[in-house]
Every structure is written in C-alpha cells, then in structure tokens.
Nucleic acid binder design. Sequence first.
DNA 1: TGTTAGCACTCGATTAAGAAGAGTGCTAAC
DNA 2: GTTAGCACTCTTCTTAATCGAGTGCTAACA
Lengths: 341, 341
Amino acid sequence: MQLDDRKWTILKAIIKTYLETGEPVGSRTISKFADLNLSSATIRNEMSDLEEMGLILQPHTSAGRIPSDAGYRLYVDYMLEEKDREVTEMKELVLQRQDKMELLLKQMAKLLAANTNYAAMISGPQYHRTKLKFIQLSIVSETQILAVIVAEGNIVKNKMLQIEHGLDQKTILELNILLNSALNGLTLEEINLSTISKLKEQAGIHSEVVNRVLDAVAESIQTEEEVEIYTSGATNIFKYPELSSSEKASELISAFEEKKDLVGMISQDGQTDETGIQVYIGQESPLQTMQDCSVVTATYELGEGMYGRIGVIGPKRMDYDKVVSTLRTLMAQLDQIFKKE
Amino acid sequence: MQLDDRKWTILKAIIKTYLETGEPVGSRTISKFADLNLSSATIRNEMSDLEEMGLILQPHTSAGRIPSDAGYRLYVDYMLEEKDREVTEMKELVLQRQDKMELLLKQMAKLLAANTNYAAMISGPQYHRTKLKFIQLSIVSETQILAVIVAEGNIVKNKMLQIEHGLDQKTILELNILLNSALNGLTLEEINLSTISKLKEQAGIHSEVVNRVLDAVAESIQTEEEVEIYTSGATNIFKYPELSSSEKASELISAFEEKKDLVGMISQDGQTDETGIQVYIGQESPLQTMQDCSVVTATYELGEGMYGRIGVIGPKRMDYDKVVSTLRTLMAQLDQIFKKE
DNA sequence: TGTTAGCACTCGATTAAGAAGAGTGCTAAC
DNA sequence: GTTAGCACTCTTCTTAATCGAGTGCTAACA
C-alpha cells in the first residue's frame, strides 16, 4: 500500500490534532477538518489503512488513533524539509549580550524552554580546536602561582599551581615570555611532544614549572570536555499528562538534574539534516528514560571551530514544526551574536 | 493544660511514627509502643488533650493524628538541644578534595541529598569581607585587556575590559604595580573614594583604565552577591506522596530550577541555634511554594569570613533528627577541609 | 482518680456495578 | 469510491455499597 495524497493529508491532520489535544483523535474529528469533505466513515477506512501501514495506532479498541513513532518520523522528516519561517522577535532578549558565556547559555536554554513549552538543554561549546591566545603566570604566594590561560574566543581559565620553591618576579616574567612565544597561536592539539621538549629545554631549571603549566593547560581542556550542560524548563513536562505520572516525571527530572546522561544524548550522532538538526522519537532515543519523549537537538557554532548543541525534550506529540523553527531562529541569533564579536 | 512527661512521650511517639510512615497515626499504634504500657483508650484521652493543645491534629474525623506545625516545632526545638551524635563515615567521599569550589559545593549538595533523601541546596560563600590579594592586567588585543582579580581564599575572577587605545607592555606593567600597591590587602569595602582618587591621580593619563578596573572589581563582587545556589536531589520530593501531586511537585521543582527564590529562603534570618541551624516548618517558610514543606538550613564557614548556607527541603514529616545531625557532620567536614587549606 | 474495655458512630477509601460516551468495523445502499 | 447506519467494544465517569481504621463516650474496675 502506498501513501497517497489523501492519506498523507489525513495523517498530517491526525498528528496536528493530536499535538494540540494530546488525546487520541477519532474519525469524526478529522472529517470535520476543513479542506477534505469526507465523511467519518471514509476517514475510518483510510485510518484503517494508515494503521495497517504502521503510521498510526490505537491505544485500545474503542479509542481514536495516535501517531506511531514511524508516523511521527514521517511527519518530522517532512517538517525538516520545509523552509524556515516566522522569525520571532526574540532578538531584544538575546541581544543584551552577556559577558559570561555561562549566562548566555543559560539564557538561551531559558528562552528555548519558554518559547516551546518543552524542557530545554544546551551544551557548552567544545574548545579543542581553539587556539591559545596567551598564558599568564602570576605569583600568589611562596608556594602558589596562578596560571591564567586565555584561548581564542576569549575563553579564560584559571588554575592555581602549587610549587615547591618560590620564584621571583623576574623568573616569572621570563617564563611568561617563554611560554607565550612557544605556545601562542597553537591549537590545543598542536602542542605536541616536540614543542614540549623544546620548551622544557629552554626553561632550564624551571622545566618543572613548565610541566605544571602544561598540565594545567591540558586539564583546563579536560574539564571542558566534560561538557557543561545547562537546562531550563524541566517542569514543562508537567504540562503533558503522558509524562507527568509520578514515576516518569521523577525519572525525567532526575535526568535533567544529573545532566551527565544528557551529554550522551546531545553528542550522539544520528540522523541530521544540513543544519545539524537531529530528532529522536520515542524508542529512537539513546536514553531509556526518554523512551516516551521526543528529543530535538541542533548544532550551533560560535565561530572559530567551537560547536555546541542545543535542544528540547518533550512529549512525542511535540510540535516539531514550532520546535524546529524556534531552534533555527535561535541558532541564527547565536550566529549573529558571535559573528559580531 | 501542661505537657507532662507522658504526653511528651506520646507526642514524640506520634511524630516519630508519622515520620516513618507518612500516615496519620492512631491510638492503637501508639499503645503498642514499647515503653509505655497503656491501652489505646488511655492514649486516646491523651491524644485528645494534645489536640486541644494544638500539638497534633486530625486530617478528618475518623483518621489518626498527625503533628501540627506547632507540634513539629516543639519536637525540632527539642532535637536541636540534643548533642551531636553518629558521625557518619561520609569522610572519604568529601576528602577527595576538589580544586574547584563549584564542584565541591555541588558535591556537598549531592552528598546531603543522598544522605537525607530530601532535596538539598547550598549557597556559594559570600566574599564581601575578603581581602584583595592581587590584580593582574594583561594585554589580549589592541582593544582588550584581561583583568584577573584574586582575593584571599584564592578566589579568582576574570574580566575582559574594552579599551579605546592600545597600551604597551610597559604601561601595563606599571599599572599592575600601581594597582597592586594601592589595593593589596584591602577588603572590598575598604576601597573608598579617597583610595580611588589617589589611585587615579597616580595613574595620570591612564586613569580611565583604572576606572575600568575598579568597575571590574566592583562588578565581580556584585555578581558574586547574586549568590550562586547549587541544588541536588530535587526528585527526592517524589518519594513523599504529600508533595508529589502534579501541581505541588511542579511548583517545587520549578523553585529548584529557578533557584533565585531559594536565595531569599537561604539568607533570611529567623530562629537559629548557636550553630546557625534554622528550621522553617510549613507556614513558617517565607516561600509560598514551600508551605507544605519543612526547610532546614545551616551556616557553614570557609574561614576568612566567608559564609554560606546549606540546607534541605523536604516534607513536614522530615526526620529532623537525621537532618540536623547530617548537617552538623557536613559542616564539620567543610570546616576541616578549609582549615587545612 | 486514673485506667481500661466495650460499643456506637464517623468518614475516608475501596470496590462493584451500571450508565454514558467515544469510536470503531462492517454492511448495505447510493 | 463514498456514505449512512448500526451493533459492538472498551474506557471513563457516576453512584452506591461496603469496609475498616479510628474516635469519643460511657461504664466498670483497681
């Protein structure tokens, strides 16, 4: 059997209606649907076909139909082909640019959650391709020096280093110059063994300090790769009865609180379109907890090779249309903000 | 009527039992209670008295009794008077000291939540009494300099400053020396107008940069006073039926997500004992959302005048005993960790 | 005077049964 | 190919009945 135009229209109508109401939709409801003048009986026949094709299903005998995962998938794929639209006026909000990346990301997640009424998450950008801008060592006390590591995109990391023997200002100054001339402009991956050994050689008796600094650099990357995730609107799930049963809600909220599970979800590869929008529906989700949800994520770029992902989690009857266009808009915003910088 | 020994024993028994079961407790249950050999009828009489005294109440006519807010209060006050005890072996966990304050605090919250089975929150320490250790300016680009501000306790803040005219290395060096000699060792409150004007005078044509730096200092304090709050175990509330109805749970989880409401709660003054443990029961809570909960918070100190608060949120039938002793232990741990530093 | 057994009574919770309603599948007619 | 009609199914809502935990009160007892 094949999906002709009428079946497709009916399927879309079923999904759209279900998205709005959250209730199984019956044949009568669809027959009243404006642009197809068909009786409920005809619709019933078509529905029967659609069910046979595995696109919709009945929760129980005398209930209406709800979209199956496959049905959603079809709908979503279709959605993703459609053009962007309705660029919302979320600009003002975003444009109060934040000094701190963290705040910006949080705000983004909040914005997304507020706009979609689903739970939102965003992962911090990953930096491994970023170039080092400079390193600055400062004396804090006899046994401590502070290393400030600045990378392109003005990402600043601090690291307190414990040392055995105090260093004087002059030595620190020299080390600063040494480190910077050796490492400036390198991506964190380009700092290889030969760079390091050359550096140590030049540092002479202070090679140990250099060691510590490099460790610090490595570590700041390390901790950054344990991707930070910000979430917002977790409580939106309570708006959807099918997710708000005590156990399910608890599990979901837990996942949001833990965050580390979300990392896997957000970084997994899967079906994506050209803008990196990726949709998991129900069972497709890599997370057990999310089997009753749909997850839509998108990749955003902050320029200079820093990528992160942003997404929403909601019920399977998610308004994919709105979510996708919201994500698109948001990503355009992010792009704009960081292009300017 | 006065609360004699037997009434007190019965009240304690009621509360303890209610804490465990979450169900209203009847006279028979209490009469079976080991150390008082009384029939249920006698207990009933006593209960009747206790109810008259406003210490317990009946949800409905033919139900058992549950403690009233006043009853809880009495119990809690009694608890707080008791000595510390059962120092748990949570040490190992805590002692993997974290480099980053943030991680430590998060871990603390997690620990607290896991140990008590309630939702936990912890506020970052507030720094306003802390002394400046040093300020370090570095050139990032033609129009940007990075100010690193280090305060006692090794709290490091970064701030990117936009400037109009590029500065050369030498000038930056001079400014660094100038700033540090002028500001070192001052608490953030001690930097007053006279310090500032003297500083500007000395900076000459670069007084504007000094201005920016001071702004940055001020701002880093500012943002720090918008206390950071970390939470954990929010989903624990689902373990208590009286809190896990959809609306209540949603509200509570929301409050946890928002966090800013928690700030008010955590910083409010109220009844505290000598260790700064503070208990809000039901209506006593400053937050509308928490009217069905109890909140226990304690002050922790990180040395050098940095204080923060840590606490749990749970049902009114909270095991105050356990919570208080857990809090005490945790605070002792924190103390130990930071004393060593 | 304090304690206890006994009993009637109350009121939420649980269960059962019935009615209502939404929606289907199928058949027969158009 | 489309539609009206109808029997049938299954959930949900409503109502009533029953159950049972727990009380308050009274009267008897130590």
